[in-house]
Design a protein around this nucleic acid. Structure first.
Lengths: 207, 207
DNA sequence: ATAAGAAAATGACTTTTGGCACTATGGCAA
DNA sequence: TTGCCATAGTGCCAAAAGTCATTTTCTTAT
């Protein structure tokens, strides 16, 4: 018996998974939530074998939910379902600690297999719809190579706690130019701010 | 013959080291600079066995100099000399990649020994004047333990690129409260901004 | 019951970030 | 020459970050 938690804001999707129960009486939906926050609150007091979550959700999205879940020490297998075939989302989900990543347009049969695989501890990414792990790595490498020396220098100095003005005087550029560079770095690393960019740079080993 | 580069804004200190040459004719000062920037520019075209640098300097200080030197791939042994017996400075210097750390009030004899030790690849920290490596580790551990769960959570979310408002809604606090927490984190980690704090947290393995 | 203390919140304020549009300069190749 | 890069810089703007003093709320321990 596999105990399943479903986190999705779309009742239809939740129902679709409940529906799946009927074709596999080994499945048992023990928890439903319509967003990550609700999920986090409910999850604590349950024996759960797999969490299936959407990414696009109000209040607390799937990636943030996953991040917080892992942060809280919970290692329950998480299968991420998403409507969009977005490379970035996949990378984020993997980094946040998901065990599986599927598009919602998958067949029920495949979802069935995926749930069993992920619940039993496997990692699963649908190859037809998503880039392979190699692709993800390749993407990182491409990204790494496209970060110029100046940009790396700026990342290092930002990591050391320098502000734009200080970075500017360190490498003899105007502080407005540093801002431009930082913006370019954020774009290249797909980061939202310098903090995230520096973290990624460290994780990718480029600084 | 040990080729030495001296980087210090105080001519007296530089002279003091040059003076040392006389008590050890195995030493050869091949380069002098009055700040880190000048040092970086001059160092490229020299065969140098050890770099002796001050921390407090105008334009580019010793830590920043060391950081940039290592970033450029230069692994020449660096001996840091400082006027102040500051635990924080030591930690920063070690993290930036120094090979030795001494107070300026050291005897010439000890400096002599230190230069030979560091130039030959040893790591050396004066035990009388500075905290031991164990102390440094202990400090990190103490620091690590004093970071509360909420603070770790905030660090993790900041590392993921969330802003204060988003962090706030994630953990059900007001965004002003997050600001307070971040300020507390900066204080505890001796960081200047969230980026540096996150980097330290990652290096210390606490997030 | 209440005093002491932590955790959470507010509001006011300054500095820093990041985005954007646009300009200037110096190669370098068609 | 001309056009096209990449690198730098400027100015303006809104948003976000960080500091500080003060207040509220909720536990505890006495």
């Amino acid at each position: 018996m596999i105990n399943i938690a479903i986190i999705d804001d779309q009742p239809i999707v939740r129902q679709g998974i409940v529906e799946l129960i009927h074709i596999n009486d080994n499945f048992n939906v023990v928890l439903q939530a319509s967003n990550g926050e609700e999920g986090l609150n409910k999850i604590a007091d349950q024996a759960i074998d797999i969490i299936i979550t959407d990414i696009q959700m109000p209040v607390l999205n799937g990636i943030a939910f996953l991040t917080q879940l892992r942060a809280s020490g919970n290692n329950t297998p998480v299968l991420v379902l998403t409507t969009f075939d977005d490379n970035e989302l996949l990378v984020e989900a993997i980094k946040a600690g998901c065990n599986g990543f599927l598009l919602k347009d998958i067949t029920l049969e495949k979802l069935n297999n995926a749930i069993q695989a992920v619940a039993s501890g496997s990692y699963l990414i649908e190859p037809q719809t998503s880039p392979s792990v190699e692709d993800v790595n390749k993407q990182s490498i491409t990204l790494t190579e496209s970060i110029t020396d100046t940009e790396k220098q700026i990342l290092r100095l930002a990591a050391a706690g320098f502000n734009n003005k200080e970075i500017a005087s360190c490498i003899h550029l105007a502080d407005g130019t540093i801002k431009n560079y930082v913006s370019k770095i954020l774009e290249k690393t797909h980061s939202r701010d310098r903090t995230q960019a520096v973290v990624k740079a460290i994780q990718w080993g480029i600084i």
